[in-house]
Nucleic acid binder design. Structure first.
Length: 738
DNA sequence: TCCCACTTTCTTTTT
DNA sequence: GAAAGTGGGA
């Protein structure tokens, strides 16, 4: 049967029924590079899934020849599910997943060539910093002189830009940058010794692999006849290079994206990648999806009126058949508490008026810290809610403890995990002992885990400690042996039981301890679920790789009947009938650190755009003139984005009891830009004066006796009526003026 | 070596 | 206001 015969069959009716003309052309243009500029809500996922389905149904590709890359597991799962619905019989063997998970899979298969085993550990940011700390101390660099955050940020940035330690060294313009390059080199060596990779390595190592082993590259180039990339605007340099390499042979690379929704610049994403796709592939076909199927015209116009102020963008405008719609409402409120209250009230009102459910609402914000007041307000009204993000499940201490044990069983060379659990639960093995073990391991060129066996030969370790070390060693060995006999779930459960962690938490009997115990139980259930789902494929390392790459949004349950609270970043790709964007204040959205950086500011604008275009029917935008941040109150001006919105598109609801000069409603034109106070804390004006009466939540009432400015903060000397004199650091002292 | 109390630092977003 | 780091006493 020829290609055209197959395609003309009735089975492809869906191509004509479900797609508009431009979408269909994008789907059916299968030869060569394709750029699909797909605006928010224009059916981007639909085009991708139909394209895959079409490639398969038309016989242009086998499932195993398709590689589809997304940024979240959720997006990948959705894509897979939708392809399955179209052509259930052709689903297995495709590589659909996130960059990180697919590359991890690739590295599990091919990593041995680079000196990694198939069960290498994946380090998250936390682990990364722990390792960096030890690397720096080995090199005798203090974390005071070279803040860990700075070092890890620069190394990560270099990796995302695919810059090697040597290159970074050559690029260095300061002594510190040279040192960072040196740490970077040592860090990479150490990772290899530990059989571990961090998130960035998952993107970089495939490139190194391809460069060093052209035959491997050749194999994957041949195999992946069709490559599809979602959210192309968020790819970084490393991802870009990897894609270029993989696509070089067949050149069937289709990328979908929207430059207006590029919001990961800070993570190394290069908007240039999508803006320049046509230069990279001069013969590419270009399709524009500009019909929006999600939102009303009012919402789109508001979003557009803001984003059009960006210079770094393809000019374009979405259109919709849903003319008009409800006006966008701007809520002007006094403070964050009131903001939360009004949001909750509006939810209740909207529910009654339009027969909506809780899951029809999303409340979005710039920073996770903003969720707290909202939570409290929702709880007061007994409204169920789900928070996405914040402290992630797999980053919780108790979860990481158990995971570290499991990782150690998989990969005894994993020193970061080793250090985490060697003395947890406490078995009397302290820092001094660990250092001796480490020195011994280094001297004899063995792993620290192997050094445990010989610990009785090491000088300076007490016999009691030797016994503890041997017991620990045997404990791990026992589970290494059990690994083949037990399922991951059984192994984990047995291990947790043997460690007595749950019992210890129960004994502690505090709210915190009990919730930690609960979390561990939940994790054991999750492992069991993984074991069932993966069936015969289930393995401990498989599970560990999975959880390393899971994000909160992946587990977000969109069917649960609850209001969703999340950051603007997490909201990308989702939609809700009613959306609230909160905290539209200078310094918060746009965030203070972006104010002096034109490119960063544009990203903030896109962030607003992403948020606004999540709304289907109704959009609320809120700003508060006071917001409690840290422990002080911060006064701010309305976001410049509010002023960019065409006033005719919105209605303003203000709840000021008495609007202040600062808080004039929607001023037409911006006079002097008043910077929010918290932008630079050292400049925060002192609101306190000597002799002033103040109240502290713990110490009670007192009198300010002195004000002592220092390099980084201001200290107040307060004489408390009951407890005497104390020094309090200003931004953190929760003082109320009486 | 462990444990407690105190100090310091951090809040932008996340695979 | 948390969470990690530091330091002194048991």
């Amino acid at each position: 049967m020829t290609k055209s015969e197959k395609i003309s069959g009735e089975s492809l009716q869906w191509l004509y029924e479900d797609l508009n003309e431009e979408q269909r052309r994008a789907v059916m243009h299968t030869d060569g590079p394709v750029l699909i500029l797909a605006g928010a809500g224009s059916g981007k996922t639909r085009v991708l899934t139909y394209r895959i389905a079409y490639l398969l149904a038309a016989g242009l590709a086998e499932p195993r020849e398709i590689l589809a890359m997304t940024f979240t597991n959720k997006a990948a799962a959705e894509m897979r599910e939708r392809v399955r619905k179209l052509i259930p019989e052709l689903i297995s063997g495709m590589w659909i997943g996130t960059f990180h998970s697919l590359f991890a899979r690739l590295l599990r298969i091919e990593g041995e060539r680079l000196g990694f085993s198939s069960h290498f550990s994946i380090y998250d940011e936390d682990d990364q910093q722990t390792l960096l700390k030890t690397v720096m101390s080995d090199l005798n660099y203090s974390v005071t002189a070279h803040p860990l955050k700075l070092v890890s940020y620069k190394i990560s940035a270099a990796k995302n830009a695919f810059i090697t330690p040597e290159q970074l060294h050559n690029l260095a313009t300061s002594k510190q940058d040279q040192i960072i390059a040196e740490i970077y080199a040592a860090y990479q060596r150490r990772l290899r010794e530990l059989d571990a990779m961090d998130f960035d390595d998952l993107l970089i190592k495939p490139i190194e692999l391809f460069q060093q082993f052209p035959l491997v590259l050749d194999h994957y180039q041949e195999r992946f006849r069709y490559i599809l990339v979602d959210e192309y605007q968020d790819t970084n340099r490393a991802q870009y290079i990897a894609l270029q390499m993989l696509a070089a042979k067949h050149r069937n690379i289709a990328v979908v994206g929207d430059d207006d929704q590029s919001i990961y610049r800070w993570r190394g994403a290069e908007i240039r990648n999508i803006l320049d796709f046509e230069l990279d592939y001069k013969d590419c076909a270009k399709f524009r999806l500009e019909q929006n199927y999600r939102s009303t015209k009012n919402i789109l116009d508001v979003a557009h009126s803001v984003v059009k102020h960006n210079r770094q963008r393809h000019p374009k405008k979405l259109w919709t058949e849903q003319a008009g719609g409800e006006q966008v409402t701007i809520l002007e409120v006094e403070d964050d508490l009131e903001e939360a209250t009004i949001v909750v009230n509006k939810i209740i009102v909207e529910m009654r008026a339009h027969h909506l459910d809780f899951h029809d609402f999303a409340v979005l914000y710039r920073t996770n810290a903003q969720s707290r007041v909202l939570e409290e307000a929702l709880r007061r009204e007994n409204i169920p809610y789900i928070i996405v993000g914040g402290v992630r499940f797999y980053e919780r201490k108790e979860i990481k403890d158990v995971l570290a044990y499991l990782r150690l069983v998989c990969n005894p060379a994993d020193v970061v995990s080793f250090r985490r659990v060697i003395n947890y639960p406490a078995r009397g093995i302290g820092e001094a002992t660990i250092n001796r073990l480490e020195a011994y391991a280094k001297e004899h060129n063995i792993s620290i885990f192997q050094a445990l066996i010989d610990c009785d030969k090491i000088e300076g370790i007490a016999s009691k400690t030797v016994a503890a070390i041997h017991a620990f060693h045997q404990f791990i060995e026992k589970f290494i042996a059990l690994r083949t006999e037990l399922s991951p779930a059984e192994l984990a459960a047995t291990m947790v039981e043997a460690l007595g962690i749950l019992k210890a938490y129960k004994q502690e009997n505090t709210v915190e301890a009990l919730s930690r115990a609960e979390n561990i139980r939940e994790m054991l259930l999750a492992i069991a679920e993984y074991s069932t789902n993966a069936g015969k494929e289930a393995s401990l390392e498989g599970y560990l790789h999975n959880v390393s790459l899971v994000t909160d949004i992946d587990t977000w349950d969109d069917r649960a009947n609850a209001v969703t609270l999340m950051t603007l970043h997490s909201a990308k790709g989702l939609e809700f009938p009613v959306v609230f964007i909160t905290g539209l204040e200078e310094g918060l959205l746009p965030i203070s650190r972006s104010l002096d950086d034109a490119a960063a500011l544009e990203e903030e604008r896109r962030l607003f755009y992403v948020g606004a275009t999540r709304a289907k029917k109704k959009l609320y935008i809120a700003w508060a003139s006071n917001r409690r941040r840290f422990s002080g109150t911060v006064y701010s001006n309305p976001s410049r984005f509010l002023k960019e919105i065409d006033p005719q598109l919105v209605m303003v609801e203000s709840t000021y009891r008495q609007p202040t000069r600062r808080a004039q409603r929607m001023p037409r034109r911006q006079e002097e830009q008043r910077m929010p106070k918290y932008e630079d804390e050292s400049q925060e004006p002192v609101e306190f004066s000597i002799g002033m009466r103040v109240k502290h939540p713990m110490f009670g009432k007192g009198t300010i006796m002195g004000i002592e400015p220092s390099r980084t903060s201001i200290k107040l000397r307060v004489l408390f009526d009951e407890s005497g004199e104390r020094r309090l650091v200003l931004p953190y002292a929760k003082l109320e003026i009486l």
